[in-house]
């Protein structure tokens, strides 16, 4: 029997999906080890405590709530100190963070504070005696590594979306705590938060991604990609590096080796050649559709379904057909 720690990531006063994934992963480890408890750390501005029951739904037995005005924006130094302090005193067997931008920033600092090694960006995990055995995609997703991490607590970051959160409801006990370092004393200060366009889905969360490449010919033609994404209703827009380099889309939309790695249910590649560096970011999508005028384009080698044709001509027709199919239900 062993207790597990999970970091419950929030932004702007709301929990992120990855928070539930981390809690749910910790739940699975606690259950596998016998009847251990899951303790989730929830930190934010005053009022964040109201989110604690949501974590109970995914299996948190205890929610450690740290409320402080200085935690309204991510405050890596104060959060890392607080998480490390709690992990040190709590005697946990494992500590789970998400491999999100915030989790990847936080977990290595916590690991270094505790003098513990960590496994990053894992897609699966299991306890095996005194080790935690994890899988981690390496070499641009072309190799899957199985790694053995010894030492307790085992610190890991879990790849977003790799393991869906499973409900395991319970009434979580709430414990209030103070930040272990004064958030006001942090040297790195968030001066400005730039919101990502309201309710717009992030490419890491979207079940469907419609991506455009240089075959779109101009920034204006990305309207056709956005229209198709809107027709799906649950889609985000992605891009190749050729397109982000030309400034047609922001760098944060780039998918690939030096961009984001995504694994949606459906990936629609529009006017994308399928360079190896692009495929590195989307090859784990469940279903891949490619539209390209060149039937020899390498993207067709990874696509489940291909249309050989001009994106400018095909996209509006596809958008209309998707709208119609969705209307029928």
């Amino acid at each position: 029997m062993a207790n597990m720690f999970a970091f419950a990531e929030s932004r702007g006063g709301a929990l992120r999906r990855v928070a539930f994934e981390a809690v749910s992963a910790a739940r699975a480890l606690a259950d596998a080890s016998g009847s251990g408890e899951v303790h989730a750390l929830l930190a934010g501005a005053p009022g964040i405590a109201s989110l604690a029951p949501e974590l109970g739904k995914y299996g948190a037995d205890v929610v450690i709530v740290v409320e402080h005005a200085g935690l309204a924006n991510a405050n890596s130094e104060a959060l890392a100190a607080t998480a490390a302090e709690r992990i040190r005193s709590g005697g946990y067997r494992a500590a789970i963070f998400s491999a999100s931008a915030q989790g990847r920033d936080l977990a290595p600092r916590v690991a270094a504070k505790l003098g513990q090694s960590m496994a990053a960006d894992v897609t699966s995990f299991g306890l095996a005696g005194d080790a935690l055995v994890v899988t981690h995609p390496a070499y641009a997703g072309k190799v899957i590594a199985t790694l053995r991490l010894t030492g307790s607590p085992a610190i890991v970051t879990l790849r977003p979306g790799a393991r869906a959160a499973v409900e395991a409801p319970r009434a979580a006990r709430v414990e209030s705590a103070q930040p272990a370092a004064d958030p006001g004393a942090s040297k790195v200060v968030v001066k400005e938060m730039i919101a990502g366009g309201g309710a717009k889905l992030d490419i890491g969360d979207a079940p469907v991604i419609v991506s455009g490449g240089r075959g779109l010919k101009s920034a204006d033609n990305f309207k056709l990609v956005e229209d198709l994404a809107a027709a799906f209703g649950n889609a985000a827009v992605g891009a190749t590096r050729a397109v982000t380099d030309d400034g047609w889309r922001p760098h944060s939309d780039q998918i690939g080796q030096t961009g984001r790695q995504v694994s949606p249910d459906l990936y629609v590649a529009c006017g994308i050649s399928g360079a190896i560096q692009h495929i590195a970011g989307m090859r784990n999508s469940r279903t891949i559709v490619a539209i390209n005028k060149d039937k020899e384009a390498p993207i067709f080698k990874v696509a489940d379904y291909g249309i050989v044709g001009d994106v400018i001509e095909v996209l509006p027709v596809l958008t209309a057909a998707v709208k119609e199919a969705r209307a029928k239900g």
């Binding site: 997703g141 899957i144 199985t146 790694l147 053995r148 010894t150 489940d304 379904y305 001509e313 027709v317």
Partner: peptide
């Protein structure tokens, strides 16, 4: 050091896809 590589594997190949058709007519 506390991490050892137990094994490396190649991920499963994607099953071969197919060209559905040409142009808007394939939609």
């Amino acid at each position: 050091e506390h991490i050892t590589i137990e094994k490396l594997e190649l991920p499963p190949e994607r099953a071969a896809g197919r060209i559905v058709g040409e142009g808007a007519a394939a939609v």
